[in-house]
Nucleic acid binder design. Sequence first.
DNA 1: GATGATTTGTACGTATGTATA
DNA 2: ATATACATACGTACAAATCAT
Lengths: 230, 230
Amino acid sequence: MARQQKQTATERIRATLADAIVRGEIAQGVTLDEASLAEKFAVSRTPVREAIRQLEAIGFAEARPHRGAVVPNFTPERLTEMFAVMAELEALCARFAAERATDDEKRALREAHDACAHSARQGDIDVYYQTNLDFHEAVYAISHNSFLAEVTLSVRNRVSPFRKAQFRSFNRLMKSVEEHARVVDAILCGDPDGAAAAMIDHMNVVRSTVGEVSPTLRPLDDQAAETAER
Amino acid sequence: MARQQKQTATERIRATLADAIVRGEIAQGVTLDEASLAEKFAVSRTPVREAIRQLEAIGFAEARPHRGAVVPNFTPERLTEMFAVMAELEALCARFAAERATDDEKRALREAHDACAHSARQGDIDVYYQTNLDFHEAVYAISHNSFLAEVTLSVRNRVSPFRKAQFRSFNRLMKSVEEHARVVDAILCGDPDGAAAAMIDHMNVVRSTVGEVSPTLRPLDDQAAETAER
DNA sequence: GATGATTTGTACGTATGTATA
DNA sequence: ATATACATACGTACAAATCAT
């Protein structure tokens, strides 16, 4: 968990901006003005430019030459598309995981699942958010395809701005754990089709709960704004 | 086909470098030196830096702070992983296409397929390369999921450095067309599973033919080096 | 392990293109 | 339609970090 000490300004700005976009603190359609951002971060425009360029390539910004970069506008249709792709990629990870998991990996998966269950029982949404992420990343790892893991994580991150509200209720937390359990069972039993199907189901539920959220997401969760502050 | 007139230096450099990497003209592990590239392109380091940063985000370069960017090293295992992901994504496109293709789209797909067949019969490898690309992109489009199309194309582009040698023989060209035909039939019949399976088969053949190529690919096809030259 | 050479990272100034009056 | 304002794109200079000796 220890982050490297010496970070370049560009890295810091990119991470901060990406986080802000992911969290929804920077709304869609907002133009990322180089000058004002440079002032905000107390650096020159150069690292800000580079950070924006990198965000662009990840899909967190859309840049038009000489006209600046804006946070992309996700239409409901686009969001549906992204969720579908994420679901299929996650399902593929689960499928491969069921085919290839070693005993050690199965144990690790079970542990990740137990951690989810624990935090869900506690009802701590923030902790669950993290353990849930860990669980999914455990599945990625067990897929034994690091490239697939990268692509899936990348897509997941691009969708994540619209996933924050999903764990609002204690009920949802427990249901999420139940859905995970089906995935885990299938992977432990070495049932690829079952694992993929269970994961697709899980992601569809996620999608439907998030679907209730307005597509034009406004900034929320300002309790976690300290990242962009400093 | 008409490219936009006013291109920024960054765009030009990024496109040229990406092309060079895709073509294998820039070998794996080579460090992308900012100064020499700037000289080569007759610009300052600034646009070169930005281009490299963008390449980095697409997976065409790996940058370490203060230590420069290198063209990533693809191990055979990594290559296998990338092919597997590409195959699954292409298969997913085909599946969706079979579910959702309109009559107009079916006609367009058939036309793209016919163009492939024609260029294959001509035995023109370069033309086939393009018509083949058009065919696959037609399938992406018919999937009715533009995000999936983007992700698939992105992965395809990242794998493409290792795909050049696949159409060496006339035989391979005709076989490729036959495989396409099975995909087309399934899509036209509205058979999602069949379309996905046919596409997976097709991609597996592609993978096996490319697998014969050395993993540490050296620059070839220098007859097309004019892009990076100027 | 310290020092110099080299390369990257950042600051800042200028030019160019886009948008608005 | 021309001109003006403004933001971005690029060039240049310097600072900082890495690598080689």
